[in-house]
Amino acid sequence: MSTTTTGQGNANRTRNLALIVIGTLIVLATYLYLVIAQPTELADNASAPAGLIAMAGYLVGAVLIAAGSIHRLSTVTIAMVPVAIALNIVVGQLVVVLALPVYLDSIGTVLISVLAGPAAGVVTGILTNVIWGLILSPSVLPFAVVQVVIGLMAGYAARYGMFRRVWLAPIAGAVTGVVAAMISAPIAAFVFGGVTAPGTGALVGMFQAWGNSLLASTTFQGLLSDPLDKLLSFTVVVLILTALPSRFLQRFPFVREYRVFRRPGVKAA
């Protein structure tokens, strides 16, 4: 996205921040437009194309946030990102093979956000879906923005101390899941017509048969599965990390700076 030098300090920091802010605004504007304007689905199509707006708005927003984030990362963090992406994909696939009723495809995103901050989570999130699209199935590509939101929220949750106690992390996970469900509902509705997988599709059909609109049905479906899924992901991450030696955790500057974990004895640094 950029050819400028990062050595220029302030000018670049402003530009990166501007990219992140504009990207976030575009994502929020897209969501609000789709929810408030309620573009009629397809039968009478004089209105603006909802599917195109959902895809383009979210994609442009996600790309801007990622472009602004990647230049804030140190080389060590950049080297960590591929590991986190591989973790997302390998565990996500394992869950598909075991036919479990959850996704668990964002453990790596949450993990790296906790260890290295929201910017690292954002880059991991968007590239996970790009790579997943490259090697397994392109239909996850439109959902890239959801992983970006998960990375952002997990990073800030860690920064404000939600990982200091084991029981706080699942709460942060459930809240993240609610936001993720709301953000992903328009994509599921307007791009996929409510059917992203046979099982969830049946649920959406059930909600529609009860008289809900398409967008409301995909939102309800998301609210049924996403909070539980993110709650599990956050719990797994906090359990893994508290089991790891604290010398390993305290290596990460983000962990030290914001005291992400409550560890007696290492606070002195």
Binding site: E41, A43, G193, G201, M206
Partner: peptide, 20 residues
Amino acid sequence: RLLLPVLAMLVLVQGLTYPG
């Protein structure tokens, strides 16, 4: 392999329960 299950479900769900 990727499309057939989703498309079949799409026709079923939207054909039978489309709100409009």
